[in-house]
Amino acid sequence: MMVAERWFMRNYMIKRIIWILPMLVGISFFAFVLITLSPSDPAEVALRVNEIVPTPEAIVSMREHLGLDKPFFTRYVEWILAVIQGDFGNSYVNNKPVFQEFMMALPATLYLSVVALIFIIFVSVPIGVLCAVYEGSIGDIFVRAFIFLATAMPSFWVGLLLIWLFSVQWGLVPTSGMQASNSVILPSFILAQTYIATYIRLIRNNMIENKQKNYVLYAKARGLKKRIIYKHIFRNSLTEVLTALGMSIPKLIAGSVIVENIFAWPGVGRLCVSAIFNRDFPIIQAYVLMMAVLFVVCNLIVDIYSALLDPRLRQAE
């Protein structure tokens, strides 16, 4: 990169990073405010979950215990300060630190998401490229019909059908849990399934769009071989794909909720859903905050490396 560009990139990155801070404040505020939306009194909920009769005295003492009697902004600031230090409070259900519960569940979800990502890349890229190269062929038409159906199919339904086929009927993989080494295959594939369809379409459409462009015509006019021309096309399609892929990582992590439920996978999605059933607000709050922060951070990273990849964007502003 030339000197001027390097300077521009640095400014761009600093600008973007600075802009994150008010976003994070806004998100944290929203996550905090969320609890006040709840029609139920957190103190009452906490009591009920622990099977203590919510008498007025018990409620008052629980409110004090949870610090709910302090004024709003005091609570917000205290909460933020605690959060920054990693203290999300304790679960209403088992009184363990929320942060600990989260950290125990997170690796499972990350494991699932990474394997799903591998599936996505290794299935959708070859198929997408082939569809673009052999545009209009029977295979292409077949794949497009399949994609259309795949985006309309509820993922939990596909999950159930595949479990029945591979687990119950053929016994190839376990139906639930994380114990066996091959138990990650089915859940991560189902998690990947919706994205695979989307990415095949994205890569295919991107490459076909590029095929119409003037630089492809000139490349053909120069007598370059097809293989080389496709290399150019693919490289041009790559930015958009990589950008989308970057944003899919947090979506995969957030979207694992259903898959973890079906497979009893001990990840953060399952943690969140049971917290919702138990009205365990601290956990729900922590989940919402962590996920939102993850999204914003990923967004930032994706923006920056998009600029790095596309030389035109570096001069955009």
Partner: peptide, 12 residues
Amino acid sequence: EIMILAIVGMLG
């Protein structure tokens, strides 16, 4: 997805 979970989480 997070927004939906958050709201369902809060409201039950």
